[in-house]
Simulated assay, not measured.
Amino acid sequence: MERRTFLRGAVVSGSAAAFGGTLMHGATHAAPAQPGPSPYGPLGSPDARGIRLPSGFTSRIIARSGQQVGGTSYTWHRAPDGGACFPSGSGWIYVSNSEVNPGGGASAVRFNSSGSVTGAYRILSGTRQNCAGGATPWNTWLSCEEVDRGYVYETDPYGVNAPVRRDAMGRFKHEAAAADPQRRVFYLTEDVGDGCFYRFVPDTWGDLSAGRLQVLRAGSGTSGSFSWANVPDPGGSTATRHQVSGAKRFNGGEGCHYAGGTVWFTTKGDNRVWRLNLAAQTYELAYDDSLVSGTDPLTGVDNITGASSGDLFVAEDGGNMEICVITPDDVVAPFLRVEGQSSSEICGPAFSPDGTRLYFSSQRGTSGSSSGGITYEVSGPFRR
């Protein structure tokens, strides 16, 4: 495992490389985003892979479920879902979960400095319905089980060390995780209709074997102040979301992304993107399709990631099979659209460490089956 000096992750300026270049230029979003012109321009005609992209961008297929990854002997997993990129020498690695049950797990694809695939391999097996997750500042991948009383597994993207189940992070229907190296905590989403939003406070930063699981407490509105309360029994028989009075409910927690003192997370049940100002301890909506003037460009909100420009990229589960961009100026617009795959969903958006390539998967591809997943790369002039 290429464990860098992770104590540097305690400051925001040291976290950009570990998060694939997603350190933003400050949390300037201040109101629910509205439709407007994309900073990348309109979408073009579908390319040979059925992807509509702005001018200057190109796509390629990296892997297909049930087929060997090009140039390797490794067979790519079914139902690719959440993912992240990690630096590896002069190249990088893209990690992808498998949302099947039983089986689950996660796989990795290794790239050299020119972007050519040099290897692919399994990093987690024998788990259940691994949906999303998150990268750590010390270059491990947290793979989360989206099942009742599911676990978080800490895995090695480099394929050296065995995965470790992190019981202290709680047993619930996990979705995504996002690290906050400034406060030395992890934020966690829960994918149920009356789910909660959590943070995990490790006893020792860099070691997830012990710590406190806390739940966000707030009023019933869409904005206000919040606080954290300890979950008394993170692994108990009583659901974590029912253990703390006043815990705020969210309708189907999905993706989660941290940058520059702000954490964003999505709730698919009501097509919202939420924003927490961590210094002020306030929350509000960054996007709500019910508050959009005109046609809403973003529906079925799911996985979320960010670019160094401050742009958020939100993948759709359904909708028009798009990845939409939300700019720091609160404009939301399509960035790409996958044609001919209406029975699928877009998963696992993640940038390469230099910010020039975006990886994502269509979980069920053109077949509409978990055996038809396709993992893509998009290259082009992303804003910095």
Rank of each mutant, 00 (worst) to 15 (best):
F335D: 06
D311M: 04
Y283C: 09
V314F: 06
Q281W: 00
S308K: 14
T305W: 03
C324F: 02
I326W: 06
M321V: 01
K268Y: 06
V338K: 10
G294N: 02
T305P: 00
Y287M: 04
D329K: 03
D296W: 00
P297D: 10
I304M: 05
A280I: 01
G310S: 12
W274N: 09
L278R: 10
G340P: 11
V273S: 06
D311R: 02
I304R: 08
L312T: 12
R275G: 02
E316Q: 15
T266R: 04
A315N: 11
G319K: 12
D296L: 00
S308P: 02
S290P: 01
V338M: 12
S290K: 12
V273Q: 08
D296Y: 02
N271H: 14
I323N: 02
P334D: 08
V314Y: 01
P297I: 04
R275N: 08
D296T: 07
Y283A: 13
I326Q: 08
R272W: 07
G269Y: 14
E316R: 11
R275Y: 03
L285H: 03
V325E: 04
G306C: 11
A333D: 13
C324P: 08
V314A: 05
D288V: 08
R337T: 11
A315E: 04
V263F: 01
N320G: 15
Y283M: 09
M321R: 15
F313A: 08
E339K: 01
I323H: 03
E322R: 15
W264C: 09
G300L: 08
N277M: 01
T299Y: 04
E284F: 00
V338W: 09
F313I: 10
D302C: 03
L276K: 08
P334Y: 00
V331K: 00
W264T: 12
S308G: 01
N303T: 13
D270K: 09
N271T: 11
A315D: 08
C324S: 15
E284L: 00
S308T: 13
E339G: 00
V338A: 14
L291K: 06
V338H: 11
V338N: 11
V314T: 02
N303V: 09
L276P: 09
Y283D: 12
D329C: 07
T299G: 09
T266N: 13
F265I: 15
V292M: 03
G294D: 05
G269P: 09
T327F: 09
L298D: 12
D302P: 11
A286C: 13
L298Y: 07
K268Q: 14
L278F: 07
C324H: 08
L285K: 02
A307L: 07
L276D: 10
W264G: 10
N271D: 15
A315G: 07
G300K: 10
E316M: 13
D296S: 14
Q281C: 03
L298T: 04
L336A: 08
V263M: 13
N320S: 15
V338Q: 11
M321K: 14
T266P: 05
G310F: 15
T266I: 09
N303W: 04
Y283T: 11
G300P: 13
L285W: 01
P297F: 05
G306V: 05
